[in-house]
């Protein structure tokens, strides 16, 4: 979609040759990280929230505590760490998919090889364009993991509580991911101009 929209706009201003760079920059800077963050909020956030909430209402978390095991260390810390580690890796996968789809869309309108597309796209890019936006998603992972674990482990009230925990995990983590993105983009622009 980005490719199609950008193509139309850039053609109007006589800058069609900048299309690969526009796609590459928008994907690695913003689209890849934020879409990954929101998808993981929806899928993993809801999963963690619902799983821990279900464990809470069936007293499984109390049983862990009664067995003298710290449930926060066992259940929350591991999930938060997994989110922090996996978000940058998933972002890389999302970036690759975004770039390939951008090339396919471009190819359907005007045949160009993937090699040419990548070369043109990355011609003005350096590591500062790539690393900070990718690693900012570790913060998204922290937010998603923290919110989902918190919502899950403080659940009350049976099946309805499990549903509420899953919903609030998704809504709150998506919201905070977007807010964090605004702050992180500002910081990245400040420290990696």
């Amino acid at each position: 979609m980005l490719s199609l929209e950008a193509r139309y706009s850039l053609t109007r201003f006589g800058a069609k040759s900048l299309l690969p760079a526009a796609i590459v920059f928008s994907v690695i800077h913003e689209t890849g990280p934020i879409i990954t963050g929101l998808v993981v909020s929806g899928r993993v956030g809801a999963g963690i929230g619902a799983e821990l909430a279900s464990m809470k209402v069936t007293e499984q978390i109390d049983a862990i505590e009664a067995s003298a095991v710290n449930p926060y260390r066992l259940l929350a810390a591991t999930r938060i760490l997994a989110c922090i580690l996996m978000l940058p890796l998933l972002t890389l996968a999302a970036d690759c998919c975004g770039l390939v789809m951008g090339w396919i869309t471009q190819f359907m309108v005007e045949p160009v090889s993937l090699h040419q597309f990548i070369n043109a796209g990355f011609s003005g890019a350096d590591f500062n364009d790539f690393l900070p936006p990718t690693f900012k998603t570790a913060v998204f992972g922290l937010i998603i993991g923290l919110i989902a674990c918190f919502q899950g482990m403080r659940t009350q009230g049976g099946a309805a509580g499990v549903g509420r925990a899953a919903t609030s995990s998704v809504v709150l983590s998506s919201l905070f991911v977007i807010l964090a993105d605004v702050v992180l983009v500002k910081l990245i622009i400040l420290f990696f101009p």
Binding site: M55, T58, E59, Q60, D62, A63, A66, S67, A68, N70
Partner: peptide, 23 residues
């Protein structure tokens, strides 16, 4: 503290009303 309470809990066995097995 949680660690001290943990030491006491190791000496206690608790059967929950609905067993609370890890599913």
């Amino acid at each position: 503290a949680l660690d001290q309470l943990g030491e006491i809990r190791k000496k206690m066995g608790f059967l929950f009303q609905h067993a609370a097995l890890y599913d």
